[in-house]
Design a binder for these strands. Structure first.
Lengths: 209, 209
DNA sequence: CGTACTTTTGAATCGCATCAAATCTGGTGG
DNA sequence: CCACCAGATTTGATGCGATTCAAAAGTACG
């Protein structure tokens, strides 16, 4: 399958620094909802990067329950596979999409030998950690309004946020039911706490009114 | 202040790979609850690593509210400062403790020039990302029991977990009030879902009884 | 011993999840 | 262009579970 590098770089700026030898080794793969791409215990042979659709890392618990360890719609999934000899989880698709497959050995070599690529990778990881820490703090807030405001403040610029996804997907990211998200947005709008014009949501400071 | 390297390595295995030149440059610093160590906008000059106590990254919102972006009890805080020219948040202490201060330039140099240290750092970041992703998924679960079981399955070994902190602190990590944690643990114990012997909490599979 | 903190249980309240249903939207095919 | 469909958006009513306030008992530390 051919790869649209411009689209991929749009999604993952890191790929701009991808060294040429690695670039030729990348494979593109489509997947369909319901498919299981890898199983727990398998030996990872590639770093996976989701371009569209949605993958879940799922662990099958002792009590028979499935537990989602990670869900990914855009970006690298199962980064831990880089360090470990076996997948800790199943990787399953919950929505049709495509992914890139970077051969693991070549990926490691590139990280060792190509400083700009390595720097980009380090930077990406550091950002990821920051984003995820903020997300965890947000999910610990137990009111819908606080989570929404925390999100705008974290992910937005100067209190203004451009929503890159449907509100339903946003609700899932915030750990809220979509109904509550809609209701709370309306309330905050009515109270004058924020402006909501389609994809642009802005906080209105109480001081500056 | 003298540094107890054995204790520090216990907390952060990464430090075992710390190159000697960097080791001599590390400074130890005590802090007290309430103290503000750095302010938003300041230029970071060091990587900070919490050994004890608790630090918060706090952002002061447009609406005057304080929002916690990250809390850290053991490990590196504000890793993003490595890449950026200014702190995005205030760094405040909420409990007395100590931290290590790694001069930023030397830290960057060590990452560039010392492969084992760099590999250890990459590994640590990858693990961190995995842990945090799991934590986010966990916090999206909206029942106390599910969060507890998810935690045991994620952070434990074979369904057995050794609790390294007070239950109250665990409750905070799970995003629950401590009362609900106690109550839910009791219920799960009574239902035979898990065993709870002081610091050792184990899931009991329904099948294997 | 006394103090501070954790652990534990109880009762009341509030907010979110859930079920239901209507409207709106974008995209497909006739 | 219009009919149609799937999915997103929006509003309402209800129940449950987590938070909160309160208070007691246990525990560690000086």
């Amino acid at each position: 399958m051919n790869i649209d590098w411009n689209a991929a770089i749009e999604i993952l700026p890191l790929l701009r620094e991808l060294p040429d030898p690695l670039r030729t080794l990348v494979q593109s793969q489509g997947f369909r909802a319901g498919e299981t791409l890898h199983r727990q215990g398998e030996r990872p042979t590639a770093m996976l990067c989701v371009l569209s659709g949605e993958l879940h890392l799922v662990r099958h618990g002792l009590d028979g329950h499935e537990r989602v360890m990670q869900r990914m719609r855009r970006g690298f999934i199962a980064e831990a596979s880089m360090e470990s000899a076996a997948y800790h989880c199943d990787i399953m698709a919950v929505a049709d999409g495509t992914l890139l497959r970077f051969p693991l050995a070549d990926f490691r070599t590139a990280l060792e030998d190509v400083p700009p690529f390595r720097r980009a990778w380090l930077q990406r990881l550091a950002r990821e950690v920051r984003t995820l820490r903020a997300q965890s703090e947000r999910l610990r807030l137990n009111s819908a309004a606080e989570r929404i405001l925390h999100f705008i403040e974290t992910e937005g610029e100067e209190g203004v946020m451009l929503l890159q996804q449907t509100r339903k997907a946003w609700a899932a990211e915030l750990g809220l039911s979509h109904e509550v998200l809609y209701r709370t947005l309306r309330r905050l709008r009515e109270e004058g706490v924020l402006q909501d014009e389609g994809g642009r949501i802005a906080m209105r400071s109480k001081v500056g009114g």
